[in-house]
């Protein structure tokens, strides 16, 4: 889009996009490192994930301050307004992704003595899928491609299916060997966290769709409910 007549307004918006890109990059790295640390039981890597969370939290506070200022001083309209509002919401989503990645990393030491390697593999597989979803949705946000965002939105069904089958798989491991129950319970939380991150990805996709088209995606999205189908 062309520049604003008041160039500092364009600069403010670009700065905002830059902050969101940094938050996205941080969230993506935290997530993939959290998954790698749990798959390879790497406590050192897990610790770095936990220690990175404050960065993303601080960025979110920073973004909120900037948006408050932008709304008060620039009174953005039309697409500018949608850009600012969606940035506010996406920043919140990314902050939550950071928290969930941290929560996954924190469980690495708790699943250290797990006997069921199969369960870990399943978690890693689901982790890769969710990481790919996050990467795709962030790319769609950078390029403002609503088609790519819609694909992420539709693909959350796959994440939910994965969660559902992983849930069953882990429960089976617990039944087979009660000594793994404690570790497997933590893995279920990890799987749930990944499923939640998938939901945050779809929320971001919805924001991209709104930002680009000015319209909301339907409230109902393809959904497989693990609780109902069990």
């Amino acid at each position: 889009m062309t520049e604003h007549t008041v160039r500092s307004f364009s600069q403010d918006l670009e700065e905002l996009s830059g902050d969101l890109a940094r938050m996205g990059g941080l969230a993506e790295d935290m997530l993939s490192d959290a998954i790698q640390s749990i798959a390879s039981r790497d406590l050192v890597l897990a610790e770095t994930v936990v220690s990175r969370d404050p960065q993303i939290d601080n960025l979110q506070v920073e973004v909120e301050k900037k948006i408050l200022r932008l709304l008060a001083l620039r009174q953005p309209l039309a697409r500018d307004l949608r850009q600012v509002i969606s940035a506010l919401k996406i920043a919140t989503e990314l902050e939550r992704v950071g928290d969930l990645a941290k929560s996954i990393a924190k469980r690495v030491k708790l699943v250290d003595k797990i006997g069921a390697d199969g369960a870990l593999k399943g978690v890693a597989r689901m982790g890769r899928l969710v990481t790919a979803q996050l990467k795709r949705v962030l790319d769609a946000y950078t390029a403002l491609e609503t088609d790519a965002a819609n694909k992420v939105w539709a693909r959350d069904e796959e994440v939910d299916e994965h969660y559902q089958s992983l849930f069953r798989e882990v429960v089976t491991y617990m039944i087979e060997d009660p000594r793994t129950i404690s570790a497997c319970a933590h893995l279920l939380f990890v799987a749930k966290n990944l499923e939640r991150i998938g939901d945050h990805c779809t929320n971001i996709a919805e924001e991209i769709h709104f930002l680009v088209t000015g319209e909301q995606l339907p409230t109902e999205r393809p959904k497989v409910d693990a609780l109902n189908s069990n």
């Binding site: 889009m1 062309t2 520049e3 604003h4 007549t5 008041v6 307004f9 953005p76 309209l77 039309a78 697409r79 500018d80 307004l81 949608r82 088209t213 000015g214 319209e215």
Partner: peptide
Amino acid sequence: VFTNPRESRTQDYITGRFG
């Protein structure tokens, strides 16, 4: 008109991008 105008000229005008 102020949240989602159809025309790009409207968009440019109300967001302060008019050349």
